[in-house]
Nucleic acid binder design. Structure first.
Lengths: 152, 152
DNA sequence: CGCATTCACTTAACATGTTAAGTATCTTCG
DNA sequence: CGAAGATACTTAACATGTTAAGTGAATGCG
C-alpha cells in the first residue's frame, strides 16, 4: 500500500496545519478559535445572514455552528433575531463589540497572511489556490451523501 | 478585508474536505474514523512504534493518540507492550485482527484514491502535492511554539 | 547516592467534527 | 381548514483537536 504519509489527504492536512499554526497564537490572544474567527469574518462582510447560509459560508456543520453562535451571543459578539416572515429562521449579525474585536485582530491577521504570501510567493500561491479549487470542483457531488439523484 | 472564503486556509480546508468526503463512508462501514485508519496504516508499514513516533507519523497530537490507542486496543486491533529498556515507552503494533481489517478496507480505499487521481489527473496531482510540500516547508518552524531557540 | 530535571505518556477540560434524533414552524394538498 | 410532509434549526452523543496539568520513569550532576 502506498506510503500514506505521502497521500493527498495527509499533504492537505499538513499544509493546512502549517498555515493555521501561524494564525492560532494571535487569535488565541484574543480568546478566539479559528472557527469563531471565521464566523466573525463572514458576518463582517454582510448585514445579516441566516444560520444555514452562515454555515455554508464559514464551512461549518449545523451543530457546530449552533454551539458556537450560542457562545458568541453570550459574549455579546453577535446578535440574533428571528425573521419576521418565517419564525424558523434566525438572522445573525455581528455586534458593535464584535466589530471592535475584528478591528483589533484584523491587522495582525493581515500581516501574517502577507508574510505567508511573501514567503511562498504570490504567484505560486495563486497557482496553488487555483489547483485546490479545481480539485474541489472535480470532486464535487461525488461523495456518498449528496443531494444528487442521478448518481451511478 | 480580503474575502475570507478565498483565503488559503479556507481553500485548503474545502479541498481536504472534498477529498475526505470520498473516503469517510467506506471507512464508516468498517467502524473506522479517519484518524483510526491513519494509525492502522502507519502501523501496518512497520513492526512496532513508540507512541511519540506514531504521533508524528499519523500527524496526531499526543492526547488524541492516547485516547484512540486506548479504544483500538479495546477493540483488539492493536497491541501494546512497554519497552524493556525504558519503562516509560510503550511499543505499539498492529494485531492480527488489525491486519485483517486493513486487508478488508484497503481495496476500496485504493480504488477511491485511484478514482480521485484519474479525475484530477495524475500529473496535476503530483504538482499539487509538490506545491503543498513546499508550502509546508517554507512555513516550517515559523509558528509560535516551536522548539527553535533563535527565533526573532 | 540523591535529588532536581527531563522525558514519555496520560488525564483533564473545553471546543469542534460528525451523525442521528428532536422541536418548532411552515407548506402542501385533500 | 387540517393533517402529512418539508424546512430550519437545536440537542444529544460520541470522537477528535487543543492546551494545560499530572504521573511515573529515566538522567544529569553535585
Amino acid at each position: 500500500m502506498r506510503d500514506f504519509s505521502r497521500s493527498l489527504p495527509m499533504s492537505l492536512l499538513r499544509a493546512r496545519e502549517a498555515v493555521m499554526r501561524q494564525f492560532r497564537p494571535k487569535l488565541r490572544e484574543h480568546g478566539l478559535t479559528e472557527q469563531q474567527w471565521r464566523i466573525l469574518r463572514a458576518l463582517a462582510a454582510i448585514e445579516a445572514a441566516e444560520v444555514t447560509e452562515l454555515a455554508r459560508t464559514a464551512f461549518l456543520l449545523g451543530p457546530s455552528l449552533s454551539r458556537i453562535l450560542r457562545d458568541l451571543e453570550a459574549r455579546n459578539l453577535i446578535e440574533r433575531k428571528t425573521a419576521k416572515a418565517d419564525q424558523r429562521r434566525s438572522m445573525v449579525s455581528i455586534s458593535r463589540e464584535g466589530v471592535k474585536l475584528m478591528a483589533a485582530v484584523a491587522p495582525s491577521s493581515e500581516a501574517i497572511y502577507a508574510e505567508i504570501t511573501q514567503r511562498f510567493g504570490a504567484r505560486k500561491l495563486a497557482e496553488l489556490q487555483e489547483m485546490l479549487g479545481e480539485l474541489e470542483l472535480c470532486l464535487a457531488s461525488t461523495g456518498a451523501s449528496d443531494d444528487v439523484t442521478d448518481e451511478t
